[in-house]
Simulated scan of single mutants.
Amino acid sequence: MYIVSLSYIAPLEEIDAQLEQHVLWLKQCYADGLFLASGRKEPRTGGIILARGERHALQLRLAQDPFAQAGLARYDITEFHPSMTVAGLEILQDRPNA
């Protein structure tokens, strides 16, 4: 699993101009099963995405984000292996042979 920390490197006016396309891109990533959760940072300096799958595939998909294509954001990817979760989120836990 991956935590993607997206950091804006452009003014919010430029972010807002691409926001509708960014949301469409997010929805497609969810539909494809790549993303598990996402949302804005507070204060509004970027966002966080929980993702699964292959790192290379994730990197390719992040490059397709309208924010990335317009040079508006930087993406930091952290891989982690969740071993414990609160009840109801067991699907996030690493499982052998998964």
Score class of each variant (00 low, 15 high):
M1T: 00
I3L: 15
I3N: 01
I3S: 06
S5D: 12
S5C: 08
L6Y: 03
S7F: 10
S7H: 15
Y8E: 12
A10D: 11
A10W: 10
A10S: 14
P11S: 12
L12Q: 01
E13N: 02
I15H: 12
I15G: 06
I15R: 11
A17C: 01
A17M: 02
L19Y: 04
Q21K: 14
H22T: 08
H22L: 12
L24D: 10
L26H: 02
L26W: 11
L26V: 12
L26K: 13
Q28T: 09
Q28C: 02
C29P: 02
C29A: 14
Y30E: 01
A31N: 01
A31I: 05
A31M: 06
L34G: 05
F35Q: 03
L36R: 14
A37D: 07
A37M: 10
A37P: 06
G39C: 08
G39L: 09
R40M: 11
K41I: 10
E42P: 02
E42N: 12
T45R: 13
G46K: 07
G46C: 06
G47N: 07
I48R: 03
L50S: 03
L50H: 07
A51W: 05
A51Q: 03
A51H: 03
A51D: 01
A51G: 08
R52E: 14
E54R: 06
R55G: 00
H56L: 09
H56W: 05
A57G: 04
L58Y: 08
L58T: 04
R61A: 15
L62M: 11
L62P: 03
A63S: 12
A63V: 10
A63N: 13
F67I: 00
F67Y: 15
A68N: 12
Q69F: 06
A70S: 14
A70T: 08
A70H: 14
G71E: 10
G71Y: 01
L72C: 14
L72W: 13
L72P: 10
L72A: 09
A73W: 09
A73C: 14
A73V: 11
R74W: 12
Y75D: 00
D76S: 13
D76M: 06
T78N: 05
E79R: 04
E79Q: 08
F80A: 04
H81P: 00
H81D: 06
M84V: 12
T85N: 04
V86I: 08
G88R: 00
G88T: 10
I91V: 06
L92S: 01
Q93I: 04
Q93L: 06
R95E: 14
P96T: 03
P96I: 02
N97L: 12
N97E: 11
N97R: 10
A98N: 07
A98F: 04
A98H: 07
